Simulated assay, not measured.
Amino acid sequence: MNSIMTCQGICKSYGSGEMTELVLKRVDLEFFQGQASVLIGPSGSGKTTLLSILGCLLAPSEGQLLIDNQPVNFSDKSSLTEVRRQKLGFIFQHAQLLPFLTIEDNLAIIGRNAGMTDDDIQQRLDNLLARLELKAMRYKFPAQLSGGQRQRVAIARALLHRPSIVLADEPTAALDWHTGKTVVELLLEQARLEQAVLVVVTHDTRMLPLFDRILSIADGILTEQQQTAAVDNIFYTQP
């Protein structure tokens, strides 16, 4: 497998002097093409902080992030914008769609920002809307969709420009178990089809068996769990 993204000694701290809080402690991690990872840990453990660094939304205090073996320059805003537009797809807890644009326009703007041609945008739109069962929603506005439908649109938006890295921060937090599981399965299916790196933050341990790799953060320290052992320890309840 090809290495797509690498963390080298990444630390993140807030404050200064005696008030300094170290949120991430020397994270060394490599992500490979087509690999789906889930990131778990208690609230305040550093999950969202790490995801924000991976998404080039937050600069590390120490260490280096490499994408396609090239160091990310967090001090160069134009370079960061280009990386986010070309290589990254980000799904937030809530879909965060532009309410004044139709679903088609919410998706098309991502393609235009990435430099895709109009023909490629339309072909990609048609394909994703069909796969995610959203064709009937194409000309509707976000307020006319259910929560699950909006999250499927958010998945389509994150994947439209064929990014090599897809990141999702609690994408099922506002959804019931059945809808949330469907959303994650759709995300996994599409990300693997595109051979993208996928990293999902979740509190729902029932999702763990769906992923290739389980990463855990506690007190800013990241460890990798063995998938079989972690799955065996999950307590399943009826939804």
Rank of each mutant, 00 (worst) to 15 (best):
M1H: 10
S3W: 08
Q8L: 12
I10F: 00
Y14H: 08
S16T: 15
E18L: 12
L24S: 04
L24G: 04
L24T: 07
K25W: 08
K25G: 03
V27D: 00
V27K: 00
F31D: 10
F31K: 09
F31Q: 08
G34F: 12
G34M: 04
G34A: 02
A36R: 03
A36S: 13
L39W: 02
L39D: 02
L39G: 01
I40Y: 00
G41Q: 06
G41S: 06
S43H: 05
G44P: 12
G46H: 04
S52M: 14
L54K: 02
C56E: 07
L57K: 01
L58M: 12
P60W: 12
S61V: 05
S61W: 06
E62P: 08
G63K: 00
L65M: 08
I67W: 05
I67S: 03
D68H: 14
Q70H: 10
P71N: 02
N73G: 04
N73A: 15
S75M: 09
S79N: 13
L80I: 12
R84W: 13
L88K: 10
G89E: 08
I91Q: 00
F92N: 08
Q96E: 15
Q96M: 15
L97W: 05
F100H: 14
T102L: 07
I103P: 00
E104A: 11
D105R: 07
A114S: 11
D118Q: 11
D120F: 12
I121N: 06
Q122E: 15
Q122T: 10
N127G: 00
L129S: 01
L129P: 05
E133C: 09
E133N: 10
A136L: 09
K140A: 07
K140M: 03
A143H: 09
A143Q: 09
L145F: 03
S146M: 10
G147E: 05
G148V: 08
R152W: 01
R152Q: 06
V153P: 01
I155Y: 01
I155G: 00
R157W: 00
R162V: 11
I165Y: 09
V166R: 00
L167M: 05
A168N: 02
D169I: 11
E170T: 06
T172R: 02
A174W: 03
G180R: 06
K181A: 11
K181Q: 09
T182D: 13
V184I: 15
L186T: 00
A191Q: 08
L193W: 10
L193Q: 12
V200I: 13
V200S: 06
V200F: 06
V201W: 10
T202I: 13
H203K: 01
T205H: 13
M207Y: 14
L208C: 13
P209S: 05
L210W: 12
L210M: 14
F211N: 04
I214M: 06
I214V: 14
L215A: 04
I217A: 08
D219C: 05
Q227F: 15
Q227N: 12
T228S: 15
V231C: 13
D232C: 11
N233C: 12
Y236H: 04
Q238K: 10
P239K: 11
